[in-house]
């Protein structure tokens, strides 16, 4: 197999790019969770905010990936380092599934349960941390799962602006018109996406509480 031989010959580069890829996806997902989960909670509690917030993240989602990278390139602090820019762009794309699922998960908590909790004298934060979040956790995580899988695919484009990752092989292969090189980037990316899907899915099942 030509592809396998090529991958073995270039294994140091392959490992390096895979790690870069994971780093881009991991850091951007963490940022997206840090922003998206609290935002999802806020819009679930204040219905007036949900339309504007969800509309804005929807609009971000409609911008083509390559275009978003190009848009962000002139921003001074970001443009200076390609990986920062890539992380920001990936985090922006990951926001939609995370915010939407957090919102759906929190809104899906049985109102009778919430009312009982309120009637028992739980404070807002006790209700959130003891009742709403534990009951919404599996829905929130399935949003994270979608976000991670999308990011793994999207992060291949980051190579176009020089942020590294498995996209390097893909873009190099495209310009060389060499399928082996394209596949050397595409196959590991596909495997990463599958592993991420299975991994977060496992977490989801083990944290499910109802």
């Amino acid at each position: 197999m030509n592809v396998v031989r090529f991958m073995v010959e270039n294994r140091t580069q392959l490992v390096e790019q895979t790690l870069e890829h994971l780093w881009l996806v991991g850091v951007s997902t963490v940022f997206a969770m840090l922003i998206g989960i609290p935002l999802g909670i806020v819009i679930a509690h204040r219905p007036r905010l949900n339309k504007p917030v969800l509309a804005s993240v929807n609009i971000i989602q409609t911008i083509p990936g390559l275009a978003l990278f190009a848009f962000l390139l002139p921003v001074r602090w970001l443009g200076a380092r390609a990986d920062r820019l890539a992380i920001l762009a990936l985090a922006l794309y990951a926001l939609l599934p995370i915010i939407r699922n957090t919102y759906t998960g929190i809104c899906g908590v049985d109102p009778a349960v919430l009312e009982a909790g309120r009637g028992m004298g739980l404070t807002q934060s006790q209700l959130l941390f003891q009742v709403e979040l534990p009951l919404a956790v599996s829905v929130i995580l399935s949003g994270v799962r979608v976000a991670v899988v999308i990011s793994v695919g999207l992060a291949t484009i980051a190579a176009a602006i020089g942020a590294g990752g498995l996209g390097e092989f893909i873009f190099r292969g495209l310009s060389m018109v060499d399928n082996r090189v394209i596949l050397a980037g595409a196959i590991p990316a596909a495997i990463l996406a599958l592993l991420a899907d299975v991994g977060v899915g496992w977490l989801e099942r083990h944290l499910r509480t109802r």
Binding site: D110, G121, Q130, V131
Partner: peptide, 21 residues
């Protein structure tokens, strides 16, 4: 304070409102 008031009053509702988790 409303939480103190409520903790001193037991509250039972129709479908029990037990925390499922």
């Amino acid at each position: 304070e409303v939480t103190r008031l409520r903790r001193g009053i037991g509250y039972v509702i129709q479908d029990s409102g037990l925390f499922p988790h």
